[in-house]
Design a protein around this nucleic acid. Structure first.
Lengths: 209, 209, 209, 209
DNA sequence: AATGAATGAGCTTTCATTCAT
DNA sequence: AATGAATGAAAGCTCATTCAT
């Protein structure tokens, strides 16, 4: 019934995850139904449940893979940088710009990651925390070199992550969003300030290679 | 089957909203069903739909009422204060402490306010923004008196709100939460810093009446 | 809450029946709900159930009153006529023209009188038969005077009534309905023919006073 | 709970339609609920909605299939007959006898086809008209051969159909119904007369092969 | 007589999941 | 590995009817 030769260098599993990403971004978790994912991916219910034990686990898998990619992208961007200030700036910059460029990614990771009743939250918490951990590690690095005063970097990473989350969320929702340049530089400056690093350093450190 | 006068000092409508708050906090939007709200409130489906046109509108109503109360509480706490620094500190302090004391409130407003697919989000955006507006107004006040450098207070209020949101969320989710005193003072300090106000001023200004 | 002085020379009961007629014509039996009738009539649920034991009985009452009026109108039109041919022609003519002029009447009596499941049908059968009885009586009269061959006038009245019903129904449903003059004269001619009376007599007998 | 292979020589879809026919005949459209159809057909709600998009569409489908079969039966009965008189007689005869023998068919097509509020009517109009078209076509044939005077065959077919409808309806509702032979011959005669064909020809033409 | 808040059985429809093929 | 027909629990919502006032 379904011809298998349209795009089938990709395996079923990946076709499903890719379609799920599109649907999830547009509809959110609860309004995403297996039927649509299966149709959009040109696969079948049976195929779906062969590769994933449940809808929930499929989404968790998708979100984990997306997070992994993003975390890796951030780490790649920081690769080789030794200056903690610069590493922090690059992390912030990469996160904000990537989310702003990949609406789908932001919608899945930021908007739909939160708020699906207790059970879902528990499932997504580790994913949510992965970003916080990246930030915390860099903040710890900054504290270690004395560039930042000793502080509760766990809490600080929460502050930073929450801020990023909200700023991007509002930017995505806005009818006339501000220039992403301004959003990045101002948010970066504020978060630098929050950790006791002069805000101007955010832009400066990004500018000097 | 249910005697009409068991507990009816409260009117049906309020009984429903109150029960809905409890269920919503425990289960989240999608896992909250009318049946349970109706049972928990000792009313009936018919009564529910007499007072609210749909489950969705009932939740929006509840969230609006909760937000109103909280915003009013914050404003009452700032009442008469003229010093912008102090007003900001009080706002942050009140928000954090109230959320930390009223788990239900936080769960409904912070956890379930976000992420229910496009349609829901559009409904809840105004509520979400109400808190940001309160913060922005105070930041504008601070800018006006020169205590804070001119800045994009819209963006800043998003940063603050996002940070508060995440900090409280993680505090609620934590197995061994830190002392709320520490969370408040450190978060306050970071956010003050982010706006260019020395972080120490947060605790100091709260201490001096 | 409801001001009582708008049209209240009419009593509640009649206000309800009048509104019910309008709603019933537009929506049909099942889509007519007590709520709307009560709203449209400016009365209340309590008022409704004070005057009628149930929705069903209210509709039966309404339909009976409408039928009564129509039957009386037909009888008034035939009043004093002795010639059976002429009485029959007048009956047909009056029925067709009245229905065609009073859409609401036709919709309630013809369209919604039929087909509401067994229970309803049993309730409405007597009403439906009232028109058949009028026709049958006149056919019997015609048989008695020898103008019509002896026949099963019960069956014949069914044939006539069914024909009238369908013709009017289709006329009401038609996008570009034919002139009612043509419909009346041709239907009259066909039914006269069916009973062995020359079809031309239908128009002729109506023309000569 | 239900073993899949109890009676499944028939496919689910047909099992549903068949059960729906029975329930619909007994209860009418509004009192037919999916629950009962599903139980009576030994299938499931899910199966029902896999095969039909809604209850309404299922009923429309059923009514269309029943009409198709009946129209085809009538055409088969007329097959090869050239004499218009005979074709008309056979059409009437087949319709009346089939309805009288298949109560279920009559109840679904005649009783429930009409009167379910505007929306339903619009859906069923095409079905209703299918029979009228068959009759009209034959009347046109009769006019073409000169056996019947030129006339508005659209209107005439409505008269015939309405008459058939009502006669069968009353026959089904009657506590002591007349012999179907008498009903057929007398109705046939009346309708022949109505079109200007001598009523006796109805019985005669059926008798001579 | 009249009001309208409250009741609850009942309805259609959805959808994650299963399983024979 | 994959298919898709079938399952059935559960959900949101409607509405004739009741009854305290």
């Amino acid at each position: 019934m379904t011809t298998r030769n349209e795009q089938s260098t990709k395996q079923t599993r990946n076709r499903i995850l890719e379609a799920a990403g599109r649907v999830l971004a547009r509809r959110g978790y609860h309004d995403t139904n297996v039927e649509e994912v299966v149709t959009k991916s040109g696969t079948s219910k049976g195929g779906f449940y062969f590769h994933f034990p449940s809808k929930e686990r499929m989404v968790v898998t998708l979100v984990e893979e997306m997070s992994d990619k993003l975390v890796k992208k951030v780490e790649r961007a920081m690769n080789g940088e030794l200056q903690p200030e610069r590493r922090l700036a690059i992390a912030l910059d990469t996160l904000l710009r990537t989310f702003s460029r990949q609406r789908k990614l932001a919608q899945v990771l930021l908007i739909n990651m939160a708020g699906h009743g207790k059970s879902m939250d528990k499932k997504f918490l580790p994913v949510r925390n992965r970003f916080a951990e990246v930030i915390q590690r860099e903040l710890d690095g900054a504290v270690a070199t004395g560039i930042v005063q000793p502080m509760d970097t766990t809490l600080a990473s929460q502050v930073w992550l929450g801020a990023l989350h909200e700023v991007i969320f509002q930017w995505l929702m806005a009818d006339n969003p501000a220039s992403i340049e301004d959003v990045v530089s101002q948010t970066g400056a504020m978060l630098f300030n929050s950790a006791g690093i002069p805000g101007e350093r955010f832009v400066e450190t990004l500018a000097t290679p």
